[in-house]
Amino acid sequence: MNSSVSTEIVMLLAGLLFVLGITGVVIRKNIIFMLLSVEIMLNASGLAFIAAGARWGQPDGQVMFIFILAMAAAEVSIGLALILQIYHQHKSLDIDKLREMNG
């Protein structure tokens, strides 16, 4: 069947999602929100892979998505552990207060 939804549109959606993710990372102060925004960005890139894979009928896009999933799982587990530890040590999740590593 023919469809008016081209790959470009899907890619545009992925791009919009990615920009939303970046915006989230930049504008939020709470680390948890930043981590959520990072997840959104990962999803966006996953979407781009799936779309490309579907466009060419190749499995590689989905393979990459699976790798992204694995990476996201690892990243989230470490990130959340760090958040826990930061909260224990600083009693705050405000990224602007956690700037001890200034040069």
Binding site: V10, I32, L47, I50, L69, A73, V76, L80, I83
Partner: peptide, 29 residues
């Protein structure tokens, strides 16, 4: 959307791992 793009397997993984496992982690924390 994955489902629409014909990647049913990816859609399943998305729901199980992301919406399921990872979100649960977030909620726990």
């Amino acid at each position: 959307i994955f489902f629409l793009l014909g990647a049913a397997f990816a859609a399943l993984l998305e729901i199980i791992i992301y919406a399921g496992a990872i979100m649960v982690l977030f909620i726990f924390v």
